[in-house]
């Protein structure tokens, strides 16, 4: 009788530890985004006297991702859609591979010779390239990340 009671006690302890581990694992394996949820953002590039307005949208629908951008400078406008496949997703890292790029125009909206750094940061989307989005911890629901290859910081909300 004593032995059976002890066995039940041990079984209970094992079950509790196992369940706790399972719950912890489930939490660590969570990704920082909601699947198929479009994340939006907008902002400005200040370039001397000019201001380039942009809107961005990121949607990750496993196993693919789409980054859409709309840029406007004065009366000129350009939009770009980047299709990517999801290579890896963890709590702090989203790794994507660029599979497709569609731009409304190949022309730059700004004077490249005057704003070369901006050009370099914006032209990096190349077919086949791998982009690492390092996720930054935030206090709210916003998705903030730093694209290591582009040195680009972005915060987006759903």
């Amino acid at each position: 009788m004593n032995n059976h009671r002890a066995a039940w006690r041990h079984a209970l302890i094992i079950t509790v530890i196992f369940s706790a581990c399972l719950a912890a694992l489930f939490m660590t394996r969570s990704v920082p985004y909601e699947n198929s949820q479009p994340y939006r953002s907008e902002g400005h590039h200040f370039m001397g006297g000019d201001t380039l307005d942009f809107k961005e949208r990121l949607t990750i629908s496993e196993p693919s991702a789409v980054i859409s951008m709309l840029e406007r400078l004065g009366d000129k406008e350009r939009h770009t859609a980047v299709g990517a496949s999801l290579v890896e997703a963890s709590r702090w890292r989203i790794k994507i591979k660029v599979e497709d790029i569609q731009a409304s125009s190949e022309e730059q909206l700004f004077d490249v010779s005057r704003h070369s750094e901006l050009l370099f940061s914006r032209q990096y989307f190349r077919l086949g390239s791998i982009l690492n989005l390092a996720v930054i911890p935030t206090h709210g629901d916003a998705l903030c990340y730093y694209i290591l290859e582009l040195d680009r910081l972005r915060c987006m909300n759903d």
């Binding site: 902002g43 200040f46 901006l118 940061s121 935030t138 206090h139 709210g140 910081l153």
Partner: peptide, 28 residues
């Protein structure tokens, strides 16, 4: 919340406003 990074002379500012909206700026 404000997140700030710098590459060369350009500074990147990303914010989460108190309303929860996100906004991004790039400037020198």
């Amino acid at each position: 919340e404000v997140f700030i990074s710098r590459t060369g002379s350009r500074t990147n500012l990303s914010c989460v406003q108190k309303t929860g909206d996100a906004y991004n700026l790039e400037f020198s």
